[in-house]
Design a protein around this nucleic acid. Structure first.
Lengths: 350, 350
DNA sequence: CGATCCGCTGTAAACGTTCTCAGTAATCCT
DNA sequence: AGGATTACTGAGAACGTTTACAGCGGATCG
């Protein structure tokens, strides 16, 4: 009895509102109203509900969105599913979306700017009520397309001030600086930097933060200590670190990313360096990986989940009230110290 | 000129097919045909295309699916976004879907059976053309609901033979056995087992595999060496391992999951055990984490990405041809040996 | 007691496509 | 040359909802 389809079985097709109405001896309009919780006489309400239950009526999503112009779906577009930072975002967004009754459509752009633009344009198909976008870098074309997007968009990342779009951002420049200062305070003096591509927004910002901090603590900038990886992945971090080690002897490494940092730790180990005894390592993102790694990874917490959660709320709020002024939320970075950046081996300062 | 909206601007509303038709001096029917690549006289084709480009026409997804009964969306439902095994699946599925022109809707059930059922029922709303489901365990209700699902479903996991649904499965029972035999061959004799909940399909199967192998290699079963974690997460693995260590002294641990394994390594370390010198550890899933961990984690490769990829292909094939007989694809497990299961310390066999 | 309002209901018009069907002109075959 | 076939087109009916509008009893008010 529990999962019975009632007597709909006679007809293979999915039951429609018209059938429910006929069975309940009311008009489709009344049936619709009853099912949507619009004031109805108790008696008819009951009949409609009974009829609907009897045939196992389920409203058709396409028809509903065509008419009501709302799909109940939001999209999340990110560069790479494999990056745990984005997975955390995904998780947070999925949570908020589900809680507020929206479905989540996922796009992975593979860090391709053209793909991002395509997704923005695709909003015009209206299969989604809004979009959360994590762009890898923002071209003028992005800005242009964002300003005229045909559905609400929230960007997680940096955006020129004149683009009238909700933004949730974090000062990762300052975050990178925090890390360098921490390393300096713990006695490290040859602090290297394994960055991701400088053309990306995070790569650019973190490089600036690294330089800021060197200046602030009075260390000489040495480009031999800086290397950029192909992308923000584990393997790229490994490769980049090997290149760096081939020409320089850092006593600490800031990595633009936890994945890069883990790659770096692997590379250090393979060349016989101990972490943190010989070389301290700090990552960024404070992803779950940090706790898994050995030694546990010191990392800059960029409030990944929080940003995602707030972006999602912002988007849903805007969908429900499109006339609000664009907001710009800023989250503060903070350093999470773990074992990988402990003080250097005593008395060993070659 | 490149990103011009043409002269649609006068009217705020999105341009509709009717407008394109009017501009091209043809009927909506012809316009539709022209845009959908159905044979049209070159002259009208050109006019329609020009008109469409001029107003920046984009077809409305809801209207299209309402009429054509196809949404171009598929759903992927998994227990937990945070588990890297599922993330790999997500990645693979996203790839296939995108390649074949489908969008991906994501559901995370939080390992809640009721939620899974709700998703199956929700198929009747028809906002999606098909579903890939990774159930945490299959109740009779699942089977019932699966048999009568109103859109194609592919299950990744185990399913009773009589349910007429495509399945992609892996023999994780044999996989677990492989691991135990490997440990035995390397001289381990007190092989413990950190399992996930036994009520889940994987938990059940892996337990059987563990017992199979003990019997096969002639080891005495000792329930003090077996502990089950609350769920398949890192923390649960940590806790469970601590419980196990409090009452037994294994020289090896099979973990039902890479996350559990990493949790176990942490727990071992915190109690002063070295891996693999004192205790060997083997995980299952062969997720990316294995390479990150230290020592690198020996793990049973359950073909995660491959299963997902094949499930996705299967689903799309079925959507495009619903009358094919249900398929049952089986992927073979294989052991990937890394450092965490190297031979025990010489001469130390207390 | 007639006018006004209130609460509910049914009719019918959207929403923007796709696709069947019939119609028309041009081409083919015998 | 006449009928059959072909190649394209337009009118209009779906698809399954939501919702503006009008109708219609019954209650309320002066």
């Amino acid at each position: 009895m529990t999962t019975s389809d009632g007597d709909a079985g006679s007809n293979g097709a999915a039951p429609t509102l018209a059938e429910v109405a006929r069975l309940a001896n009311v008009s489709v309009a009344s049936a619709s109203r009853a099912l949507n919780g619009i004031k109805t006489q108790p008696e008819t309400l009951e009949q409609v509900l009974a009829a609907a239950a009897r045939v196992g009526y389920v409203p058709n999503a396409s028809a509903r969105s065509l008419r009501s112009k709302r799909t109940g779906q939001v999209a999340f577009s990110m560069p790479d599913v494999a990056n745990p930072a984005y997975t955390s975002m995904l998780r947070a967004i999925q949570g908020v979306a589900r809680e507020r009754g929206y479905r989540l459509v996922l796009h992975s752009t593979g860090a391709d700017a053209a793909e991002e633009l395509a997704i923005l344009r695709d909003l015009r198909r209206r299969f989604v009520d809004g979009l959360i976008l994590v762009p890898i870098n923002v071209t003028p074309e992005h800005a242009e397309e964002l300003s005229r997007a045909s559905a609400p968009v929230v960007v997680i990342g940096r955006l020129p001030a004149e683009v009238p779009v909700d933004v949730v951002e974090v000062d990762s420049r300052r975050g990178a600086a925090l890390a360098v200062k921490h390393l300096h305070a713990h006695g490290r003096r040859r602090i290297g930097f394994v960055n991701g591509p400088v053309k990306t927004t995070p790569g650019h910002a973190r490089r600036l933060g690294y330089l800021d901090a060197l200046r602030a603590v009075g260390l000489q900038r040495d480009d031999a200590l800086v290397e950029t990886a192909e992308d923000f992945t584990l393997d790229a971090g490994h490769e980049a670190t090997l290149r760096l080690l081939a020409r320089a002897r850092p006593d600490a490494l800031l990595c633009a990313n936890d994945l890069l940092a883990l790659g770096a730790i692997g590379a250090l180990r393979s060349t016989g360096c101990e972490v943190p005894a010989d070389v301290a390592v700090v990552g960024m993102d404070n992803s779950d990986l940090g706790a898994i790694a050995w030694p546990a990874l010191t990392s800059v917490d960029l409030g990944t989940s929080e940003r995602a959660r707030r972006a999602a709320s912002l988007l849903l709020d805007r969908i429900e009230d499109p006339d609000r002024a664009p907001e710009r939320i800023r989250v503060a970075p903070k350093l999470v110290v773990r074992a990988s950046s402990a003080r250097a081996r005593k008395g060993r300062r070659p």
